[in-house]
Design a protein around this nucleic acid. Structure first.
Length: 646
DNA sequence: ACTTTATGCGTTTTT
DNA sequence: CGCATAAAGT
C-alpha cells in the first residue's frame, strides 16, 4: 500500500499533531476541526511506522467512535490495524477483567449489571433496611451519588453530607448503609455495575503488579478520544497504563465537556501539560463544518465561560445566512413550525437525513413526535430507554443469564415474576428456599414447584421443560439457542397475553436472536448486551425513500455528529438550561457547553426555538423566560423571522 | 393481614 | 418507562 502523503491530506495544524514525535501529546481540537481525522491518521501513522497494532490501545466513549476510527484507519493502511485494542473504556475493562477477575474474588463468568438491574437492587435494599419512605432518596439518586463517589475517588460520606446538608430528614449514615449492603449484594450475585468495571481494573493493577506490568509493556502507544470527558478513574487508569512507555496521545475539547454529572473532570485535560512535563500541545481551530454565522453564535455563547483553553473557531466556508431565533407560542406551535421548515428545506433540496432536531431532555420531543406521527413523517429517535433495557429484551436474556450464572438473583426473580400470582415477595421467598442459588438440578426444580401457588404451576411446568431441555447439552449451545427454546416453550405465549404491541416486540426478539448468533459463547453475548447503547444499535437503518429520515436526539447523544440543518428545542430557562442544573454550582457553565455542542452540530442552518408558554404541573399555562443562552447572543448575529399563526 | 394487579401521571443528561 | 395508589385476590 502506498505511503500516506500527510501534508497533502491534512491541514498544517492537523499534520503537526499527527506527525508529533513519541511521548505525551495533547491535541486541543475545537468542534468540527477534524478531531476524528487527526486521531485516525495518527493511528495510521503509527502502523505505517511499523508498530504492531496489538500494542496500540485506542480508548473512546462510544462504540460508534471506535468503529468509525478503526474503519477509517483500515482504509488508510489496510488490514494491518486488525489486532488493535480499540473500544470504549468499559469494553476494554471487560476484556481485561474476563481474564483476571478471579484475582479480585469474582467468577470469570460475572454478570454486568445495567442501570435497571442496579436500580432494582438498591430499591430492594432500601426497603429491606426499612429506610424507604417519602423522604429517603430514590434509587436513581442514590446510584448517581454512589457512581459519583466511585468515579471521582471522593468519600461517599463527604458527598452524601454535602448533598443532603439542607435535608434534615435524610440521614447520610443510612445512605452509606445502603451503599455497603449494595456492595455485598453485588458480590453475592457475582455482578459488577458499570462503575465497578472501571474501579476493578484499577484495583487489579494496584493489587497485581505483575499483571499491571504486562499491560504496561504490551501497550506501547495509547490514544484517548474525548479526553475532556474522562473521570478520575479513567484518567488514573490511563496514567497507569502509560507510565512505562509514556506514549500517550490525547484529544479533546474542554468546551465540549458535558459529563461532569457523571464524574467527568475537564481539569484532566487542562492539567495535562503539568502532569506530563514536556508534553507537546497542539491546537486545532480551523473549522470545516459550519458557516461563519453559526460559528459566531457558538463563539459568542461560549465566551460566557471562564476557566477554559481560549480558542476561537475560524471558518473556511463562505457566507450564507444567519441562524434564526423563532419565537413560538407553545410546544405544539414549535412542532408545527419545525414541520413547516422541514418541508421548506426539502423543497430547497435538502435530504431529510441531513436534518436533526436536538433537545435537552427526552420528554421535550413529545409534542414533536406526536405531530410527526400525525403528518406521517418518518423519524428516528435515540430514545430514552436503551434497546437492551426494554422489558421484553431483558426478559429473554434473563434465562441466559441465570443459566450461565446460577447466583444471578435478579434474573431469577425476573423469571419467577412471569408466573401468575407470583410477585416480588413470593419470588424472593423461593430464592431464599433455594439457598440463593439456582442450579437447574431436579431438586432445585422440585423446590420451586413446591413453593408455587396452585395457579402458577402450569406456567412453571413449561419453563421447567425449557430449562431441562437447554441444560441437557450445557456447553454446546449459543445464547440464541437458549432464547429460542425459552421463547418457543414459554415466552411467546406470555408475551401475546401481556403486551398490546406484541408483534413489534416479537420482531425485536427475533432480531436479538439473529444478533446473538454471531457470538462464540453466551458470555460474550451477555457482555456485549450490557455495554452496547441503543445509539450504536440503531445506526445504519435502512431508509425508505432514499432521502433518509429526520433524526431526533438529545444533545448528549448528538456529540460528534453533524447535519446541514439543526433545530434546537425549548430554549427557555428551566427547560434549557434545565431547572435542576441551576441548583448546582457550575451547572449553568455545563449547560452552556451543552448549548455550544448543539450549535456546532449545524453546518448550514441553525434554528433556535423559543416557546412563550408551557403547560404547568396542574395543567395551567406557565409563561417561559427566554433562555439566557439566546439572550447572550448579540442581536445582530441572528435573525428573528416573523411567525404567522401556525 | 399480606400480596398481587390495574390505572393514571410525570420524566436531565449515559457507559 | 417507573411510581404511587387503590382495588381485588389468597
Amino acid at each position: 500500500m502506498a505511503l500516506i502523503d500527510y501534508s497533502k491530506e491534512l491541514n498544517e495544524e492537523q499534520c503537526r499533531a499527527v506527525l508529533a514525535p513519541d511521548g505525551p501529546v495533547l491535541v486541543i481540537a475545537a468542534a468540527g476541526t477534524g478531531k476524528t481525522r487527526t486521531l485516525t491518521y495518527r493511528v495510521a501513522h503509527l502502523v505505517e511506522r511499523g508498530i504492531d497494532a496489538r500494542r496500540i490501545l485506542l480508548l473512546t466513549f462510544t462504540n460508534r467512535a471506535a468503529r468509525e476510527m478503526l474503519d477509517r484507519a483500515a482504509k488508510l493502511v489496510g488490514a494491518a490495524v486488525g489486532g488493535l485494542w480499540g473500544g470504549t473504556f468499559h469494553h476494554m475493562a471487560n476484556r481485561i477483567l474476563r481474564r483476571h477477575a478471579d484475582k479480585l474474588g469474582y467468577g470469570l463468568d460475572y454478570t454486568i449489571l445495567d442501570q435497571d438491574d442496579s436500580r432494582k437492587l438498591v430499591k430492594a435494599i432500601s426497603e429491606e433496611l426499612d429506610y424507604a419512605g417519602k423522604h429517603f432518596p430514590k434509587p436513581d439518586v442514590l446510584l448517581s451519588l454512589y457512581g459519583y463517589a466511585a468515579s471521582t475517588g471522593e468519600s461517599l460520606r463527604v458527598i452524601a453530607e454535602e448533598r443532603f446538608k439542607y435535608h434534615e430528614e435524610i440521614n447520610p449514615e443510612h445512605v452509606i448503609a445502603v451503599a455497603e449492603a449494595y456492595e455485598i449484594r453485588k458480590r453475592k450475585l457475582n455482578g459488577m455495575d458499570f462503575d465497578d468495571m472501571l474501579l476493578n481494573v484499577l484495583r487489579l493493577f494496584r493489587q497485581e503488579p505483575g499483571i499491571c506490568a504486562s499491560y504496561q509493556e504490551q501497550f506501547q502507544h495509547i490514544l484517548v478520544d474525548e479526553y475532556q470527558d474522562t473521570n478520575y478513574l479513567q484518567s488514573e487508569w490511563v496514567d497507569l497504563m502509560a507510565a512505562k512507555n509514556r506514549n500517550l496521545f490525547v484529544v479533546g475539547d474542554d468546551f465540549q465537556s458535558i459529563y461532569s454529572w457523571r464524574g467527568a473532570n475537564f481539569r484532566n485535560i487542562l492539567s495535562f501539560p503539568e502532569r506530563y512535563q514536556g508534553a507537546s500541545v497542539f491546537k486545532l481551530e480551523t473549522n470545516y463544518r459550519s458557516v461563519p454565522e453559526i460559528l459566531n453564535v457558538a463563539n459568542a455563547c461560549i465566551a460566557g465561560n471562564p476557566e477554559q483553553f481560549q480558542k476561537t473557531l475560524r471558518s473556511v466556508r463562505e457566507n450564507y445566512k444567519v441562524p434564526s431565533v423563532a419565537v413560538l407560542r407553545d410546544g405544539s406551535a414549535q412542532a408545527r413550525y419545525i414541520i413547516e421548515q422541514i418541508a421548506r428545506l426539502k423543497r430547497a433540496g435538502y435530504k431529510t437525513s441531513e436534518m436533526a432536531v436536538l433537545y435537552r431532555s427526552h420528554f421535550h420531543a413529545m409534542e414533536l413526535q406526536m405531530e410527526l406521527t400525525r403528518e406521517r413523517m418518518p423519524y428516528v429517535i435515540t430514545s430514552g430507554a436503551r434497546f437492551f433495557e426494554q422489558a421484553h429484551i431483558k426478559d429473554v436474556c434473563a434465562i441466559v443469564r441465570l443459566l450461565r450464572n446460577p447466583v444471578d438473583e435478579l434474573s431469577f426473580l425476573r423469571i419467577m415474576e412471569f408466573l401468575p400470582r407470583v410477585g416480588r415477595r413470593s419470588a424472593a421467598k423461593i430464592w431464599e428456599a433455594l439457598g440463593s442459588r439456582f442450579d437447574a438440578t431436579p431438586q432445585a426444580l422440585e423446590t420451586v414447584r413446591m413453593k408455587l401457588p396452585a395457579l402458577a404451576r402450569e406456567s412453571w411446568q413449561s419453563i421447567e421443560t425449557v430449562i431441562t431441555e437447554i441444560t441437557r447439552d450445557p456447553e454446546g449451545a449459543g445464547a440464541e439457542a437458549y432464547m429460542e427454546a425459552f421463547v418457543d416453550g414459554f415466552y411467546d405465549e406470555y408475551a401475546v397475553e401481556t403486551f398490546d404491541n406484541y408483534s413489534r416486540r416479537q420482531e425485536d426478539i427475533q432480531e436479538l436472536m439473529n444478533y446473538a448468533s454471531q457470538f462464540a459463547t453466551p458470555d460474550d453475548f451477555l457482555s456485549e448486551m450490557a455495554l452496547l447503547s441503543n445509539l450504536d444499535a440503531e445506526d445504519d437503518k435502512p431508509t425508505d425513500d432514499g432521502k433518509g429520515v429526520i433524526r431526533l436526539s438529545t444533545i448528549h447523544q448528538a456529540k460528534g455528529l453533524e447535519w446541514k440543518a439543526v433545530f434546537v428545542l425549548w430554549l427557555a430557562d428551566g427547560m434549557f438550561p434545565s431547572a435542576k442544573s441551576l441548583e448546582v454550582p457550575g451547572g449553568v457553565s455545563e449547560e452552556r457547553r451543552l448549548f455550544y455542542v448543539a450549535t456546532t452540530r449545524a453546518k448550514d442552518e441553525l434554528f433556535l426555538c423559543v416557546p412563550e408558554v408551557r403547560r404547568g404541573k396542574d395543567g395551567g399555562t406557565q409563561f417561559c423566560i427566554t433562555s439566557r443562552f439566546v439572550e447572550e447572543i448579540p442581536e445582530k448575529l441572528v435573525s428573528r423571522p416573523y411567525i404567522g399563526f401556525v
